[in-house]
Design a protein around this nucleic acid. Structure first.
Lengths: 174, 174
DNA sequence: CGCAATGTAAAACGAACGTTTTACATTGCA
DNA sequence: TGCAATGTAAAACGTTCGTTTTACATTGCG
């Protein structure tokens, strides 16, 4: 693994577990196993590193929810939570931590949430047989809710969201 | 207004808008309109101040969702979002920012989320006519989802959650 | 009256922050 | 063979952090 992805992976782990602001560069260099000089050559700055982490996470998450049905969407979310744990949405968290004042971060978050909303709408449209923006908004709320409720309610939150989505889909079809 | 509540109110605003870690004590003293000596006499420490903010917010939020039906719960949430804006759940955010490593904060968050879960279960039980823990978990996910989706989807997220909850309740009754 | 309480203004504390620099070792390729 | 690239280790940069301290003003009450 090259140094850049090694750094990005270590940074994602630390930022996710301890927060962006609470993670110092010394902990980053130690976890990434490289000198601060090398770190800055690859990352540019702490904010740029966070932006890179978000972009990378975006790719990984979107690949995971490349599905065709609403139920598969929640199954994918269950997998994600099992593998990555649940500490809330890293995109919303990083924006909140910086108050939206860090352009590189705010932009990465905006791009992700737009793409996420689009993907949910597509999945709902495929499953429902036609475009249904109202149902899509409900499913988006359920995914977001499962993500954040899982922080303190555990995996039950995701299965509850999954069951709720099934009811809403059935009702929309009737 | 006495100095303690003046400080707490100013701190809540700054922590909510810019994040806990990103808000320095100088900004706090300036916004609260008091010297740092007075601030520390009333707050003890930054972490204790955050804990007090959370306890105060907990009281205000729980008073707002003192309702008897699921629909009223979401109506209250709509009010809350209109008045306070939507920057995500301050409890989850403060825990995430500190990585759960600040006991005073982690405890305030845990107390709030337990009480919140209990309240939702009670409201669902009243509305449904009997205890229904599965429906309660779904409604909790919807509230949490509305709170966080509203950050980037606006008030529509809350109305979507409200409509979804109505469908789930109707279905549970059938 | 006098003192205890409560406040302000501002300097100072050591520690930690993100970042840059200095000095040097290793490596791969022309 | 030699140089450019890439890495390490560690000190230093100036700034900002949360917190404490010093010195002084105001006020309310026994």
């Amino acid at each position: 693994m090259d140094m850049t992805s090694q750094l990005t992976a270590a940074a994602e782990r630390l930022f996710d577990r301890h927060g962006y602001m609470a993670t110092g560069m010394d902990r980053l260099t130690e976890a990434a196993g490289m000198s601060s000089r090398t770190l800055y050559k690859h990352a540019g700055s702490k904010a740029a590193l966070m932006a890179r982490v978000l972009t990378e996470r975006h790719r990984r998450f979107m690949a995971r929810i490349d599905v065709r049905t609403i139920d598969a969407l929640f199954a994918a979310l269950e997998d994600w939570v099992r593998v990555e744990g649940s500490r809330g949405c890293l995109f919303l968290r990083s924006r909140a931590e910086t108050g939206g004042d860090t352009p590189e971060i705010a932009e990465a978050v905006a791009l992700h949430k737009e793409a996420f909303h689009r993907r949910v709408s597509e999945v709902v449209a495929m499953d429902r047989g036609r475009e249904d923006l109202a149902l899509a908004e409900q499913v988006l709320v359920l995914v977001e809710g499962a993500t954040h409720a899982a922080v303190y309610r555990g995996a039950d939150a995701v299965s509850a969201a999954r069951a709720a989505a099934a009811v809403l889909l059935e009702r929309a079809r009737a």
